[in-house]
Design a protein around this nucleic acid. Structure first.
Lengths: 199, 199
DNA sequence: GTCTATAGCCGGATAGAC
DNA sequence: GTCTATCCGGCTATAGAC
């Protein structure tokens, strides 16, 4: 393979690893599968990263950065009414889940793997914290735009959102029940609307 | 090892596999680790089961049967008031989670592994269906005992419960934040109480 | 029936040629 | 710097002695 800078090679490997994880799961993301996906040799892998876990750490970081980017791009659309904004925020994740369940399964597997792996635990919590920050900023934006107040602190509400989206994800991965997903989405929206302060 | 009936040997292997999965995760539940846990030889394993996946299928079935047994044993305690019964039902799971997070992580890993494995997919959905049945029966019992009606069908409400408990589980596994777990439990109870029909 | 021993494969990581 | 070839360990599954 042509000469590449280490930085460029690392980038390519992280991308390939993500592709394999999303398609076949963390278990299948062996160094060999990853280099095959990236079209490079096994030795080149170890030239760029000392170990498989070091690469996986970089993968988690890329995922985290993705959330941060999404946060920056965030746009509020549609009528400026709390319920419809909350619904569209939840729905946008649900549609992501529906469109690419394997991706979400890969992300959960990555979290669980990180938790079990010495040296990756802190990276896992960082992944969650980033997702948390993203959710919090959405909630804050909705409150600002509509002039709403919440009954509970924003960080707690954000955790409630991730709790429910995680639960929706696991349930959908197992059952693949689109109708149930729609109905549950409505219940989730209702649960959040319950936390709007009505003066 | 002394002579054992195949049935007894299988039982021992399933128990050992569950122990390893709960302690070290599905990934670590190799045939070698399992027979070491059970104190038998590798060859004896293959005398009882044709393959590792065949054993894992049996493990999932045992978990399912466990839920069914829990359902039969179910007792309603405390004051006959909807909110306190709902809270105690949720809390009893949350305390289970807090006491043995590794066990719950193992169960989630088992589900995700089953989903990815040809021939275990149906077993995975059966696992969830059993959990679903258990939850439904609890909800029904609470409604009967207190004379309450729910705004939504019981099966949907049961799915909402599993959605939220799954979410609580993933979040707790990553963050190990006991205070957040308490606060989220209260929000979950509130979300369920919202679905009580007040005439 | 139960064991030890081993086949056969795949994994991460490395040596050494170029 | 990048490659091919290889080491070495752990895995599932099986062969064959007893």
């Amino acid at each position: 393979m042509a000469r590449m800078s280490v930085a460029h090679r690392r980038e390519a490997l992280v991308g390939a690893a993500l592709a394999v994880i999303e398609r076949d799961g963390v278990h299948a993301a062996t160094t060999r599968a990853i280099v095959a996906e990236a079209g490079m040799s096994l030795a080149s892998f170890h030239y760029a990263y000392a170990s498989r876990d070091e690469l996986l750490e970089a993968v988690v970081r890329r995922v985290v950065d993705g959330y941060a980017a999404a946060e920056a791009d965030l746009e509020i659309e549609g009528p400026l009414e709390v319920e419809s904004l909350v619904r569209s925020a939840i729905t946008s994740y649900v549609e992501l889940l529906r469109a690419d369940p394997a991706r979400e399964q890969g992300m959960i597997e990555l979290s669980l793997y990180s938790i079990r792996t010495e040296g990756l635990r802190t990276v896992a919590t960082a992944q969650y914290a980033a997702y948390q920050d993203f959710t919090e900023s959405v909630i804050r934006r909705i409150a600002e735009v509509t002039g709403t107040r919440w009954k509970v602190p924003t960080p707690l509400l954000a955790r409630m959102v991730t709790t429910m989206t995680d639960g929706l994800t696991l349930g959908y991965l197992v059952n693949r029940d689109d109708e149930a997903l729609d109905q549950l989405t409505e219940l989730v929206v209702a649960a959040l609307m319950q936390q709007v302060e009505r003066d």
